[in-house]
Design a protein around this nucleic acid. Structure first.
Lengths: 147, 147
DNA sequence: TCTTGACCTAGAGTAGGCTCTAGCATGTCT
DNA sequence: AGACATGCTAGAGCCTACTCTAGGTCAAGA
């Protein structure tokens, strides 16, 4: 099972470019990368798994630095499990805040769409939206740029 | 009501910096900015409202370019309401995808936390996570960097 | 009048996250 | 053996979205 995967193959399997994978490694996001006789990087299935997990973290707005720290903890073995759990729980809380924020935005957009519908119906601009409740402050976190 | 608001005040009211407001204007995100006798920018309440709305769009991952396009349509009056509605509906659909993605991530993180809990309990590493269902592909959109 | 603070423009600099180039080595196929 | 794909390193370049600097103008209070 422990196939010896070269970088091009890992790129296909993980959906990132060869360049990006090398860059991730340089940033400390990819642990235990082996080399073959010719100096080429050799990966195993665990790396595919790890990259898939990082992809979720990244898409949900975790910074490269935080992913590095998480990966570095993994490298230190079971003793760091509590820290890793804590970081994941922190990220989990952020995601919950992000979801709440996005749901607030959905409501606002719906209010704006109503506003436009009224404008079209009455043929005159309705009173300002800000008078509405849901708007208020757009405080709190925000997710990150999808690919 | 139409108070004459100067840029420093708008910065306070909108939560962005004076620099950023001027930059937004240069990017076409702020329509109809007046000037007083001394050449200083003069805003009205509608601008505060507009910036608050942009803030929601921005925090939910809309690009400056898309906000510019939306703002530009507004400048052309009621005739562009259908286009503006369409853009908002597009953004709304993106938000729904983002929410679904974040919820998938929550499940994955929970699975990973279970994995760690088992590891701690059994004192040995459980079999790989990827065997689990929920994981699969992290395809689809992703929100953007909160402030 | 003098000083201080808020503004102005143009343009440079920054941070994060890639993305690509150049020049060279290695491996495989015919 | 030669051609071509794939890999390597070091480092430059790019895009987005700001953020800040430099050098000057304007207005109101002491």
């Amino acid at each position: 099972m422990t196939r010896r995967i070269h970088i091009g193959r890992l790129a296909q399997l993980s959906g990132r470019s060869v360049h990006t994978i090398r860059w991730y490694e340089a940033r400390g996001l990819i642990p235990n990368v082996g080399r073959d006789a010719g100096g080429r990087r050799v990966y195993v299935d665990g790396h595919v798994e790890h990259l898939a997990f990082l992809e979720w973290l990244r898409r949900t707005g975790m910074s490269v630095e935080d992913m590095r720290a998480f990966t570095a903890l993994g490298l230190q073995g079971w003793r760091t499990i509590p820290q890793r759990e804590e970081r994941l729980r922190d990220h989990r809380r952020k995601l919950e805040r992000d979801i709440a924020m996005l749901q607030g935005a959905l409501q606002l957009i719906d209010a704006k769409l109503d506003y436009f519908a009224q404008w079209r119906a009455r043929k005159k601009r309705p009173p300002a939206l800000l008078a509405m409740p849901a708007l208020a402050e757009p405080r709190e976190a925000g997710p990150t740029p999808g690919s």
